[in-house]
Design a protein around this nucleic acid. Structure first.
Lengths: 338, 338
DNA sequence: CTGAAAGCGCTTACAG
DNA sequence: CTGAAAGCGCTTACAG
C-alpha cells in the first residue's frame, strides 16, 4: 500500500499522512493521532526507499571493520565491541549495515560504493587504518564518520574519534610491573596492529623506566592476534621462563590467555614464576581460570559516546570531537606480588 | 551527479547509462564499454535509493539474530557463524544488515519494520524461533527467508532451511559414550535453547540406550549458555565427580570448556576421571588446553548453502529447499577411552 | 492546519 | 541498438 492509497482510504491527503507519520508539527494533534491509529490498524509503513530518495537520508549507519578482523573468533575483543555497538544503537532509530574493508587490497569497493551509492548516513569506524584515498572520499562526500577504539599512526586532525589511550594503558602496566623487582620483563606484541601495539609498548617502556627498569628490545616477542599464536610463542620460550622469573605484558587479553595456557601446560606456576598482564579486559578474561589481570579499556564508555556523536553529526547538531579515553589497571589472578 | 547529468556529460542518453551500468545487453558492446570507462573516470555510481524505488530491490539482505544472542561473547558459536556468513556473502553483491529480535517481547518492530519498509530483499535467520505473527508476516509479504543452524519445535512445512541434525549429533555422542562402561553419564543442558537442547538430549539418550545404558533424567544438569555458568554448575557437582568416574555430554563446546575449567581448578583429571564431550566444534574448542572433544557441526557447509539458496530465492531462480545437515564426532583431548 | 503539485534519480515499456 | 516519456512512493515548498 502506498501513502496515496492509504491517505485516500482513511480520508486525508498524502501530505497529511507523511506529516503525521514523520511526527511533524505541521499537522493538528487530533489528525496526527487519527492517522497514527489508522496506520497501526492497517499496518501501514512508509516505503523507506522513496523516503530516502526525497530526503537523501537512509536511516542506516555503517559499521566499518578492518578485514583482518573478519574472524571475530580470533579477535574476540571485536565481538565484544560489536555487542556494545549493537546494544547502544538499538536505542536509536537506525539500522545497521556491516561493512568490511581490507587495507591490504586496493579493493575498497564495499566501503567506497556504500558512500557513492548513498546507502548509509554515516560510519562508525573501528580503528583508523583507512588509506589516504579513503580519507579523501570521506572528506569529499562529507560523510559523517566517527573513529573509535585503536588509532593508527597518521591521525587526521579534522576527524572525530574516541580512542583508547593505549600509551597510557601501557604506562600503567609498566609502573605496575616495575614493582616486581626480581622479575625479568617481557612484552608480547602483534604484527596485525603495529601502530597501536607500539603505542602500548612505548607506554610500557616509559612506565618501567620511571621505576628504574630499562627494557631491552630483544625482550619483545612477536606473534599474531589469537590465543593459539601466543600459546605457541610462549611455549617456545618455556626453557627461559623456567630459568628466571618473568613478568609478561601482552598486547591483548587474548595473547595473555594463550600465555597462561602455555604456562599451565608446561607446569610453570602463574603468577609465582610467570606474571601475566593483558590489555582490553574482554569478557573472556574473567571466564577462564585463572582470571586474567589486565588493563581495562572502557568500551562501555567509548561506544555510547561514539554512537551519540555520530547521530549528532548526521543531524548536524554537533561538530568534530576528539577524545582519548584512559584505561585503568585491573589486577586479578595472573599477576600478584608474592 | 545524477545519471541524467552524467549521461549529458558523456554524450549519451540516460537509459543508455542505466543499461550499461546494469550490464544489460540492450546496449551495444562498444557503447557499454565507453560508458563504463567514463563511469570509472568520473567515479559515477547510480543512486541506490532511486534504483530501489524503481526496481523494489534493495541489494541488501538482513541477518536476523535472536536477541538473547546479542552477546556474542557469551555465545561464541554465534560469532563463528557470523564470520562464516560475512565471508560467504562477500562474494555476492549484497550488503548486509544485521537485525536483532527479541522473542520474549512483543516488540518485533525492527524485523517487522525492515519488511514493511522494504529495507531488505531477504533474510537469513539464525534459529527458527520466530513467533507465529512473524511467520505470518513472512508469508504475507512473500519475503525470501532461509533459516539455518538450530531449529525450534514448530518447523513450518513451507519454509526453506538448513538445520544441523542435532538429534543425530546427540546420538553420536551417546553411541560413543556408551563404550565408556564404567563411567556414569551426565548431560548438561541450557535453558535458552530448549527445543534444540532436547533434540540433542534425545539423540544422546537413544545412542546410550542402543549401547545398553539407560539414562536417568536426574542426571540432566541445567545451566545457561556461557562458560561461567557451566563452570559454576560443574563446580557444584565436584564431590560427586570425585566419587565416581563420569562422562559428561554438554549442549555446546562453551559449556564443555566451562566444565573442563572447573575440573582443572579442582584437580579432577580430564579425561581419566571426567570425560567431557561438547558440541558445535567452535574455534575456541581447539584454542584452549586441553582441546575439547566435540560433535562437529558443519557451519562451513550450512552457511554457503543457505546463502546461495537465499540468493536464488531472491532472484526467483529456486524454490523451497530443506535439509538437515549431519554432524560428526571429533575426538580430541577431553575424552578418551583409557 | 491542510492539500495540489512538483520533483528526488533512477528503470523500463514504448517508439523508432 | 538508442532515446523521449512515464512513473516508482515519498516529501516539501507553496497556496489557501
Amino acid at each position: 500500500m502506498t501513502s496515496r492509497e492509504f491517505a485516500k482510504l482513511i480520508g486525508v491527503s498524502q501530505p497529511t499522512v507523511s506529516r503525521a507519520l514523520n511526527n511533524s508539527n505541521l499537522v493538528a494533534p487530533e489528525t496526527k493521532e487519527y492517522v497514527l491509529k489508522k496506520a497501526r490498524e492497517y499496518k501501514f509503513e512508509l516505503n523507506s526507499q522513496a523516503q530516502s530518495l526525497k530526503t537523501s537520508r537512509t536511516g542506516t549507519i555503517g559499521i566499518l571493520f578492518p578485514k583482518h578482523f573478519i574472524s571475530m573468533n580470533n579477535n574476540l575483543m571485536l565481538a565484544h565491541v560489536y555487542d556494545c555497538i549493537q546494544q547502544e544503537l538499538s536505542s536509536y532509530d537506525y539500522d545497521i549495515m556491516v561493512i568490511y574493508y581490507d587495507s591490504n587490497s586496493q579493493d575498497f569497493s564495499r566501503f567506497e560504493r556504500s558512500i557513492r551509492k548513498k546507502k548509509v548516513d554515516g560510519f562508525l569506524v573501528l580503528r583508523m587504518e583507512l588509506m589516504d584515498e579513503e580519507m579523501e572520499l570521506i572528506q569529499q562526500y562529507q560523510v559523517p564518520c566517527v573513529f573509535m577504539m585503536n588509532a593508527n599512526a597518521n591521525i587526521r586532525e579534522n576527524l572525530s574519534y574516541f580512542f583508547s589511550d593505549s600509551f597510557y594503558g601501557g604506562y600503567l602496566a609498566g609502573k605496575y610491573f616495575g614493582e616486581f623487582r626480581d622479575y625479568h620483563k617481557m612484552y608480547i606484541t602483534v604484527s596485525e596492529e603495529r601502530d597501536d601495539a607500539s603505542r602500548r609498548f612505548n607506554g610500557y617502556r616509559k612506565g618501567l623506566e620511571e621505576m628504574g627498569y630499562y627494557f631491552r628490545d630483544e625482550d619483545i616477542v612477536q606473534c599474531n592476534i589469537g590465543i593459539r599464536s601466543a600459546y605457541d610463542c610462549v611455549s617456545r620460550h618455556m626453557e627461559l621462563l623456567r630459568k628466571r622469573k618473568t613478568a609478561i605484558f601482552t598486547y591483548s587479553d587474548l595473547l595473555a590467555i594463550g600465555a597462561v595456557q602455555a604456562c599451565l601446560r608446561h607446569d610453570v606456576a602463574v603468577p609465582e614464576q610467570v606474571q601475566i598482564l593483558g590489555m582490553d579486559d574482554m569478557p573472556l578474561a574473567t571466564m577462564l581460570q585463572p582470571e586474567i589481570s589486565t588493563v581495562h579499556v572502557d568500551v562501555d564508555e567509548i561506544v555510547p559516546k561514539a554512537c551519540h556523536l555520530l547521530m549528532e553529526l548526521i543531524e548536524k547538531k554537533a561538530v568534530m570531537r576528539q577524545e582519548w579515553v584512559r584505561p585503568r589497571l585491573i589486577i586479578r589472578e595472573t599477576s600478584l606480588l608474592v
